[in-house]
Design a protein around this nucleic acid. Structure first.
Length: 416
RNA sequence: GGAGGGGUGGCCGAGCGGUCAAUGGCAGCAGACUGUAAAUCUGCCGGGGUAACCCUACGUUGGUUCAAAUCCAACCCCCUCCA
């Protein structure tokens, strides 16, 4: 089709959010008729979402910004099943307490990206446990199970891949797609929700929902998926050395979050600016055209914008300033991550390798020794030659010690 | 219930009585080169220890042996086929 007329779909197309859509023209037409309701589901598998989900959150944000109503669906019910999509084996069962705790952690992040309330374009949050938990098995099978054929279910990747790899797929997991389809139909019935979005791996689950809605409610529903993002060198988004890039500040500090974006590969800068910031496309075009070292400026803007959305203006500014002092001036910034050691211990002297362990820069004495022996350990910006070198109060500068592991990881140590 | 195959370090995957903390690949870390990028090259990559060396580890538990990831027994789990 030609370029979409609706503002939402224009944004989605221009900025790279579009992977597949069940019926782009019809959805465009529907959006032209007035505000619509769309949802994205988030299962409560961890205490925080990570940047892998950020594209979905931005989609909801654009949806709201372009005059529509977003629904955030918390998968309180479906998390008890476990989505087999893209997994080689069943995830361990999460207890109800874990799920409740995870949901509480995840919910907080949405308030930063969406405005909630009762207005026509205000976002709302619902929990599919509200309807899934009370389903009656036989009734459900008769009303909904008859719309699914095993023949067709076996053709979906989530099922097919497991079977082809001869990995077990339990009946519990096999039901996941049915429940997700039911969610969509239910959200149509309750809130006239007409669109489900999600990552491309959710395509099968989404299509099932579209079809189920048509069969049981005669509703015209739509699905739209975003591409699975990898970095230019092929790594999945959101993973780093120390684990996932969490969106919650208590799981990953705004400083580390800023650093993650600052270290974006050159080739990804333009793509990420379009997806994860709201800068005008013309400005992004200029930034991504920067060559050589100049593109670092674009990375700083990327880091600043993304951090501002996730953690606020102040946190973003502080991270930028800390980075400037630390990396560009080589000066000491008081806002670097800080750990404390007992003043008495420091006065007595602590071996360098032990201090690196205490500072959390490495996880074992052996690793600390290796780091230092290989020339990757510095104290107050001076290389440490001997892992056993004692460090004491005499090394304090302005009341702190600055420890560095490698080129990028800095920690301040304060006696207390 | 029967027959066969399999469970090895974060992952994949060799090993099949000693020379095995266990080949190789991926991931990760450090150094060089750079731009807090990528690619490349070099080193490292279970824990403790300056080191000698010690401890833990090859599904679980016992056993054989001077010596077991490797052999035996029982058990647990997974896969395939049959009933």
């Amino acid at each position: 089709m030609t370029s979409p007329r609706s503002e939402f779909l224009q944004v989605v197309a221009e900025r790279g959010f579009m992977h597949q859509c069940t019926d782009l023209e019809a959805l465009d037409k529907r959006l032209g008729e007035g505000p619509a309701v769309a949802y994205i589901g988030f299962d409560a598998t961890a205490q925080s979402l990570h940047v892998g989900s950020l594209m979905q959150i931005m989609l909801l944000r654009w949806w709201q910004k372009t005059g529509n109503k977003p629904i955030v669906l918390m998968g309180g019910g479906t998390t008890r099943i476990g989505d087999p999509t893209g997994k080689d084996e069943a995830r361990k069962m999460l207890s109800d307490e874990d799920i409740a705790r995870n949901m509480a952690g995840i919910q907080t992040v949405f308030a930063k990206y969406l405005s909630f309330g009762d207005g026509p374009t205000d976002s709302m949050m619902v929990n599919n446990a509200d309807w899934l938990d009370q389903l009656n098995y036989i009734s459900f099978l008769r009303d909904y199970g008859r719309h699914f054929t095993i023949n067709r279910m076996m053709t979906f990747d989530s099922v097919k891949l497991r079977l082809e790899r001869e990995q077990p797929l339990t009946f519990l997991e096999f039901n996941y797609m049915i429940l997700q389809a039911y969610d969509f139909a239910e959200l149509w019935a309750r809130n006239k929700c007409v669109l489900q979005m999600g990552g491309s791996d959710q395509w099968g689950n989404i299509v099932n929902g579209v079809e189920l809605g048509r069969r049981v409610h005669g509703a015209e529903l739509f699905g739209l998926t975003s591409p699975l993002l990898t970095t230019s060198s092929g790594a999945k988004m959101g993973k780093t050395a120390n684990g996932a890039v969490w969106l919650n500040a208590d799981m990953l500090s705004p400083w580390d979050f800023w650093q993650y974006w600052r270290n974006t590969e050159d080739a990804d800068v333009g793509r990420f600016l379009k997806l994860y910031t709201e800068l005008p496309l013309a400005e992004i075009a200029k930034l991504e055209a920067l060559q050589g070292a100049a593109i670092n400026e674009a990375k700083k803007i990327l880091a600043g914008e993304v951090t501002r959305l996730a953690h606020g203006e102040a946190a973003a500014a502080e991270a930028a300033e800390t980075a400037r002092k630390t990396f560009e001036e080589g000066a000491l910034s008081a806002n670097l991550p800080t750990v404390s050691v007992a003043a008495g211990d420091l006065a007595a002297g602590i071996t360098a390798f032990a201090l690196f362990v205490q500072a959390g820069l490495v996880t074992s004495n052996g690793e600390a020794r290796r780091l230092i022996q290989q020339g990757g350990g510095r104290l107050n910006d001076q290389p440490i030659k001997d892992p056993a070198q004692p460090i004491s109060s005499a090394d304090l500068k302005d009341g702190v010690l600055k420890l560095t592991a490698g080129k990028k990881r800095h920690v301040l140590v304060r006696p207390e």
